[in-house]
Amino acid sequence: MKTFDHLSVIGLREWVALPGLGVANLRAKIDTGASTSSLHATEIEPFERDGEPWVRFIAHLGSLKQLRDHPCEAPLVSMRLIRSSNGHEQMRYVIRTSLALGDRLWEVEFTLACRKRMRYRLLIGSKALVHGQLVVNPGLKYVQDKPAYPATTFPATGAA
């Protein structure tokens, strides 16, 4: 069996932060079957800033019992047709923002989607795992420490 020292191990669930959106202490589900990562968002509204496409939205964070709304803005990367595991296709907005997991911080693309029926508000897909040089041990949960990015250092939105 080969091992790779440069890869970090994570579990099926991990604590993450999205510093570019001002979000800390968010539980994420790791989904190696999903290509793109996804964030629960509603009230998605495209707009222009300095001639560039942006999107504003409400990110819904926390659990079903303690849901909190967080207004965000981020540059719009693209619109993408996404096919869910049950075969349903949906056109989604795609943003790129920083993801902090353990002691790592890197840029990840997220589709904005309604995940209100899902237990986890954030899904981390296989592209993010590859770029973060992470491997998943499906028998583990919350392997990494919570990211050390205090929420008070984040901007209020993804705006520059």
Results as ranks from 00 to 15, higher is better:
Arg115Val: 13
Gly158Asn: 08
Glu43Pro: 06
Leu105Pro: 02
Thr3Lys: 12
Val16Gln: 02
Pro53Ile: 11
Met79Ile: 05
Ser78Pro: 10
Glu43Gln: 15
Leu123Phe: 13
Arg104Val: 05
Thr157His: 13
Pro46Asn: 14
Ile124Met: 05
Pro46Tyr: 14
Phe4Ile: 04
Asn137Ser: 12
Arg121Phe: 05
Cys72Lys: 00
Pro138Ala: 11
Ala160Phe: 09
His6Gln: 10
Val9Asn: 01
Phe57Trp: 04
Ala100Thr: 03
Leu61Val: 11
His70Pro: 08
Phe47Ser: 08
Val143Met: 03
Cys72Glu: 01
Lys146Ile: 11
Lys116Ser: 15
Phe47His: 15
Gly139Pro: 02
Arg104Asp: 05
Thr36Glu: 07
Leu39Thr: 00
Ser8Met: 01
Leu101Trp: 09
Asp5Phe: 03
Ser37Gly: 02
Met91Asn: 12
Ala59Leu: 04
Lys116Gly: 03
Lys127Asp: 08
Glu73Cys: 13
Glu109Met: 10
Leu101Phe: 06
Asp69Thr: 14
Arg96Cys: 15
Leu76Pro: 05
Ala148Val: 06
Ala59Val: 06
Arg68Asp: 05
Phe110Pro: 00
Val136Leu: 13
Arg104Trp: 06
Leu129Gly: 03
Leu81Gly: 00
Arg49Tyr: 13
Arg27His: 14
Leu101Gly: 03
Val55Asn: 05
Lys116Met: 13
Glu89Phe: 07
Leu140Val: 02
Lys65Phe: 12
Arg83Lys: 10
Lys146Thr: 07
